[in-house]
Protein backbone atom coordinates (compact mmCIF):
# COMPACT_ATOMS: atom_id res chain seq x y z
CA UNK A 1 0.00 0.00 0.00
CA UNK A 2 2.80 2.41 0.87
CA UNK A 3 4.45 1.61 -2.46
CA UNK A 4 1.34 2.72 -4.33
CA UNK A 5 1.11 5.86 -2.22
CA UNK A 6 4.75 6.77 -2.94
CA UNK A 7 4.26 6.07 -6.64
CA UNK A 8 1.09 8.19 -6.71
CA UNK A 9 2.80 11.13 -4.99
CA UNK A 10 5.86 10.75 -7.22
CA UNK A 11 3.73 10.77 -10.38
CA UNK A 12 1.79 13.78 -9.17
CA UNK A 13 4.97 15.75 -8.40
CA UNK A 14 6.53 14.95 -11.77
CA UNK A 15 3.35 15.80 -13.71
CA UNK A 16 2.93 19.03 -11.81
CA UNK A 17 6.53 20.05 -12.43
CA UNK A 18 6.46 19.29 -16.13
CA UNK A 19 3.19 21.18 -16.56
CA UNK A 20 4.67 24.32 -15.02
CA UNK A 21 6.69 25.30 -18.02
CA UNK A 22 8.40 28.25 -16.36
CA UNK A 23 9.79 25.86 -13.80
CA UNK A 24 11.30 23.58 -16.41
CA UNK A 25 12.83 26.59 -18.15
CA UNK A 26 14.14 27.96 -14.84
CA UNK A 27 15.77 24.78 -13.65
CA UNK A 28 17.21 23.63 -16.98
CA UNK A 29 17.51 26.82 -19.02
CA UNK A 30 19.30 28.96 -16.44
CA UNK A 31 22.22 26.56 -15.86
CA UNK A 32 22.56 25.92 -19.60
CA UNK A 33 22.64 29.66 -20.26
CA UNK A 34 25.29 30.14 -17.54
CA UNK A 35 27.31 27.36 -19.07
CA UNK A 36 27.22 28.74 -22.61
CA UNK A 37 27.87 32.37 -21.57
CA UNK A 38 30.58 31.68 -18.98
CA UNK A 39 32.06 28.78 -20.90
CA UNK A 40 32.31 30.66 -24.18
CA UNK A 41 33.19 33.97 -22.54
CA UNK A 42 36.05 32.69 -20.43
CA UNK A 43 36.94 30.21 -23.14
CA UNK A 44 40.71 29.70 -23.28
CA UNK A 45 41.54 32.54 -20.88
CA UNK A 46 40.82 30.19 -18.00
CA UNK A 47 43.91 28.33 -16.81
CA UNK A 48 43.12 26.18 -13.78
CA UNK A 49 46.05 25.73 -11.41
CA UNK A 50 47.53 22.31 -12.00
CA UNK A 51 44.86 21.55 -14.58
CA UNK A 52 45.38 20.46 -18.15
CA UNK A 53 45.86 23.50 -20.30
CA UNK A 54 44.25 22.27 -23.48
CA UNK A 55 40.70 22.08 -22.12
CA UNK A 56 38.71 25.31 -22.22
CA UNK A 57 36.35 26.61 -19.60
CA UNK A 58 33.39 25.08 -21.43
CA UNK A 59 34.75 21.62 -20.58
CA UNK A 60 35.80 22.57 -17.07
CA UNK A 61 32.39 24.05 -16.32
CA UNK A 62 30.40 21.09 -17.71
CA UNK A 63 30.34 19.04 -14.47
CA UNK A 64 29.62 22.23 -12.53
CA UNK A 65 26.66 22.90 -14.80
CA UNK A 66 25.39 19.37 -14.21
CA UNK A 67 25.58 20.05 -10.48
CA UNK A 68 23.75 23.36 -10.93
CA UNK A 69 21.01 21.62 -12.90
CA UNK A 70 20.63 19.07 -10.12
CA UNK A 71 20.64 21.84 -7.51
CA UNK A 72 18.05 23.98 -9.33
CA UNK A 73 15.77 21.08 -10.13
CA UNK A 74 15.95 19.68 -6.62
CA UNK A 75 15.29 23.10 -5.16
CA UNK A 76 12.43 24.06 -7.46
CA UNK A 77 10.87 20.70 -6.91
CA UNK A 78 11.10 20.73 -3.12
CA UNK A 79 9.81 24.29 -3.09
CA UNK A 80 6.56 22.72 -4.25
CA UNK A 81 6.06 21.48 -0.70
CA UNK A 82 5.49 25.11 0.33
CA UNK A 83 2.95 25.52 -2.46
CA UNK A 84 1.32 22.23 -1.45
CA UNK A 85 0.91 23.65 2.01
CA UNK A 86 -0.49 26.96 0.74
CA UNK A 87 -2.79 25.38 -1.83
CA UNK A 88 -4.11 22.85 0.67
CA UNK A 89 -2.99 19.71 -1.14
CA UNK A 90 -0.58 18.86 1.66
CA UNK A 91 -3.20 18.70 4.39
CA UNK A 92 -5.10 16.19 2.29
CA UNK A 93 -1.98 14.03 2.21
CA UNK A 94 -1.35 14.51 5.93
CA UNK A 95 -4.77 13.11 6.86
CA UNK A 96 -4.40 10.15 4.48
CA UNK A 97 -3.34 6.80 5.93
CA UNK A 98 0.19 7.21 4.60
CA UNK A 99 3.37 7.06 6.71
CA UNK A 100 5.18 10.40 6.86
CA UNK A 101 8.33 8.74 5.50
CA UNK A 102 6.40 7.98 2.30
CA UNK A 103 5.90 11.72 1.77
CA UNK A 104 9.66 12.29 2.08
CA UNK A 105 10.59 9.39 -0.19
CA UNK A 106 8.08 10.51 -2.83
CA UNK A 107 9.24 14.13 -2.75
CA UNK A 108 12.95 13.31 -2.85
CA UNK A 109 12.63 10.64 -5.53
CA UNK A 110 10.44 12.87 -7.70
CA UNK A 111 12.88 15.76 -7.60
CA UNK A 112 15.86 13.46 -8.09
CA UNK A 113 14.26 11.86 -11.15
CA UNK A 114 13.51 15.27 -12.62
CA UNK A 115 17.08 16.38 -11.90
CA UNK A 116 18.53 13.35 -13.65
CA UNK A 117 16.19 13.80 -16.61
CA UNK A 118 17.26 17.42 -16.94
CA UNK A 119 20.91 16.42 -16.72
CA UNK A 120 20.33 13.91 -19.55
CA UNK A 121 18.68 16.57 -21.70
CA UNK A 122 21.62 18.89 -21.06
CA UNK A 123 24.19 16.24 -22.00
CA UNK A 124 22.26 15.46 -25.17
CA UNK A 125 22.45 19.07 -26.32
CA UNK A 126 25.92 19.91 -24.94
CA UNK A 127 27.78 18.72 -28.09
CA UNK A 128 25.91 21.38 -30.09
CA UNK A 129 27.80 24.04 -28.12
CA UNK A 130 31.04 22.27 -28.95
CA UNK A 131 31.65 20.38 -25.72
CA UNK A 132 33.05 16.88 -25.78
CA UNK A 133 30.81 14.57 -23.75
CA UNK A 134 32.55 11.42 -22.45
CA UNK A 135 29.67 9.09 -23.32
CA UNK A 136 31.20 5.93 -21.88
CA UNK A 137 31.66 7.55 -18.49
CA UNK A 138 28.04 8.64 -18.21
CA UNK A 139 26.70 5.65 -16.22
CA UNK A 140 29.25 6.37 -13.49
CA UNK A 141 28.53 10.10 -13.70
CA UNK A 142 24.80 9.47 -13.32
CA UNK A 143 25.44 7.33 -10.26
CA UNK A 144 27.16 10.36 -8.71
CA UNK A 145 24.37 12.70 -9.87
CA UNK A 146 21.85 10.36 -8.25
CA UNK A 147 23.59 10.64 -4.89
CA UNK A 148 23.86 14.41 -5.34
CA UNK A 149 20.20 14.63 -6.33
CA UNK A 150 18.99 12.76 -3.27
CA UNK A 151 21.19 14.83 -0.96
CA UNK A 152 20.16 18.20 -2.42
CA UNK A 153 16.47 17.25 -2.61
CA UNK A 154 16.46 16.12 1.00
CA UNK A 155 18.30 19.31 1.97
CA UNK A 156 15.74 21.35 0.03
CA UNK A 157 12.87 19.55 1.78
CA UNK A 158 14.53 20.08 5.14
CA UNK A 159 14.65 23.82 4.45
CA UNK A 160 11.24 24.10 2.78
CA UNK A 161 9.16 22.06 5.23
CA UNK A 162 9.01 24.61 8.07
CA UNK A 163 8.53 27.60 5.75
CA UNK A 164 5.15 29.06 4.93
CA UNK A 165 6.17 31.23 1.97
CA UNK A 166 8.33 30.69 -1.09
CA UNK A 167 9.95 34.12 -0.60
CA UNK A 168 11.69 32.77 2.49
CA UNK A 169 13.00 29.89 0.45
CA UNK A 170 14.46 32.15 -2.22
CA UNK A 171 16.39 34.05 0.44
CA UNK A 172 17.85 30.84 1.80
CA UNK A 173 18.58 29.66 -1.70
CA UNK A 174 20.62 32.78 -2.48
CA UNK A 175 22.43 32.83 0.86
CA UNK A 176 23.08 29.13 1.30
CA UNK A 177 22.49 26.93 -1.71
CA UNK A 178 24.05 29.07 -4.44
CA UNK A 179 27.23 29.74 -2.38
CA UNK A 180 27.32 26.04 -1.59
CA UNK A 181 27.45 25.36 -5.31
CA UNK A 182 29.90 28.21 -6.05
CA UNK A 183 32.29 26.87 -3.42
CA UNK A 184 32.15 23.23 -4.43
CA UNK A 185 34.73 23.28 -7.18
CA UNK A 186 31.94 23.62 -9.74
CA UNK A 187 33.01 27.07 -10.96
CA UNK A 188 36.70 27.18 -10.03
CA UNK A 189 39.06 24.55 -8.63
CA UNK A 190 40.05 24.67 -4.96
CA UNK A 191 43.76 24.50 -5.81
CA UNK A 192 44.07 28.12 -6.88
CA UNK A 193 41.86 29.56 -4.13
CA UNK A 194 43.02 31.35 -0.98
CA UNK A 195 43.60 29.29 2.13
CA UNK A 196 40.44 30.30 3.97
CA UNK A 197 38.34 29.56 0.93
CA UNK A 198 39.99 26.19 0.55
CA UNK A 199 38.99 25.49 4.15
CA UNK A 200 35.39 26.49 3.42
CA UNK A 201 35.38 24.33 0.32
CA UNK A 202 36.71 21.37 2.26
CA UNK A 203 33.86 21.76 4.74
CA UNK A 204 31.26 21.88 1.97
CA UNK A 205 29.73 18.43 1.38
CA UNK A 206 28.96 19.30 -2.25
CA UNK A 207 32.72 19.66 -2.90
CA UNK A 208 33.03 15.90 -2.44
CA UNK A 209 30.17 15.27 -4.84
CA UNK A 210 31.86 17.55 -7.40
CA UNK A 211 35.19 15.75 -7.00
CA UNK A 212 33.46 12.42 -7.51
CA UNK A 213 31.56 13.77 -10.52
CA UNK A 214 34.73 15.04 -12.22
CA UNK A 215 36.45 11.74 -11.53
CA UNK A 216 33.47 9.79 -12.89
CA UNK A 217 33.44 11.85 -16.09
CA UNK A 218 37.17 11.15 -16.47
CA UNK A 219 36.47 7.42 -16.11
CA UNK A 220 38.19 7.41 -12.70
CA UNK A 221 35.24 6.96 -10.30
CA UNK A 222 36.96 4.06 -8.52
CA UNK A 223 39.63 6.45 -7.26
CA UNK A 224 36.98 8.91 -6.06
CA UNK A 225 34.79 6.48 -4.13
CA UNK A 226 35.76 7.92 -0.72
CA UNK A 227 34.62 11.39 -1.79
CA UNK A 228 31.39 9.91 -3.14
CA UNK A 229 31.05 8.23 0.26
CA UNK A 230 31.20 11.64 1.96
CA UNK A 231 28.47 12.96 -0.34
CA UNK A 232 26.37 9.82 0.27
CA UNK A 233 26.78 10.15 4.04
CA UNK A 234 25.62 13.76 3.82
CA UNK A 235 22.67 12.61 1.71
CA UNK A 236 21.73 9.93 4.24
CA UNK A 237 21.96 12.44 7.08
CA UNK A 238 19.72 15.01 5.36
CA UNK A 239 17.26 12.27 4.36
CA UNK A 240 16.97 11.06 7.95
CA UNK A 241 16.72 14.62 9.24
CA UNK A 242 13.97 15.40 6.71
CA UNK A 243 12.03 12.27 7.69
CA UNK A 244 12.26 13.16 11.37
CA UNK A 245 11.19 16.74 10.70
CA UNK A 246 8.22 15.73 8.54
CA UNK A 247 7.11 13.21 11.18
CA UNK A 248 6.89 15.81 13.94
CA UNK A 249 3.24 16.82 14.37
CA UNK A 250 2.79 20.55 13.85
CA UNK A 251 -0.11 22.89 14.01
CA UNK A 252 -1.32 23.25 10.46
Amino acid sequence: MTGHAVAALWRRDVLRFLRQRSRVIGSLGTPVLFWILLGSGLGQSFQPAGGSTDAGYLEFFLPGTLALIVLFTAVFSTISVIEDRQEGFLQGVLVAPVPRAAIVVAKVSASTSLALAHAAVFLAIAPIAGAAVPWLSLPAAFAVLLVMGVALSALGLLIAWPLSSTQGFHAIMNLLLIPMWLLSGAVFPADGATAWMQAVMAANPLTYGMTALRAALDGQLASALPTLGVMAAFGAATLIAATVLVSIPREE
Binding site: A5, A7, A8, R12, G88, G92, V93, A96, P97
Partner: peptide, 30 residues
Protein backbone atom coordinates in the same frame (compact mmCIF):
# COMPACT_ATOMS: atom_id res chain seq x y z
CA UNK B 1 -8.22 4.76 7.51
CA UNK B 2 -11.76 5.34 8.77
CA UNK B 3 -11.82 9.00 7.88
CA UNK B 4 -12.79 10.97 4.82
CA UNK B 5 -11.89 14.63 5.22
CA UNK B 6 -13.25 17.63 3.36
CA UNK B 7 -11.40 20.83 4.17
CA UNK B 8 -12.84 24.28 3.90
CA UNK B 9 -10.15 25.16 1.38
CA UNK B 10 -9.75 22.67 -1.43
CA UNK B 11 -7.07 20.01 -1.04
CA UNK B 12 -6.88 19.13 -4.72
CA UNK B 13 -3.97 19.83 -7.05
CA UNK B 14 -5.02 22.52 -9.55
CA UNK B 15 -2.35 21.39 -12.05
CA UNK B 16 -3.81 17.90 -12.28
CA UNK B 17 -7.00 16.87 -14.03
CA UNK B 18 -10.07 15.76 -12.12
CA UNK B 19 -9.34 12.09 -12.83
CA UNK B 20 -5.67 12.44 -11.90
CA UNK B 21 -6.65 13.96 -8.59
CA UNK B 22 -9.11 11.18 -7.84
CA UNK B 23 -6.59 8.51 -8.81
CA UNK B 24 -3.87 10.00 -6.62
CA UNK B 25 -6.29 10.11 -3.70
CA UNK B 26 -7.37 6.49 -4.25
CA UNK B 27 -3.76 5.33 -4.21
CA UNK B 28 -3.10 7.21 -0.99
CA UNK B 29 -5.97 5.28 0.58
CA UNK B 30 -4.75 1.92 -0.70
Amino acid sequence: RHLGVVFQHPAVDPWLTVVENLRTHAHLYG
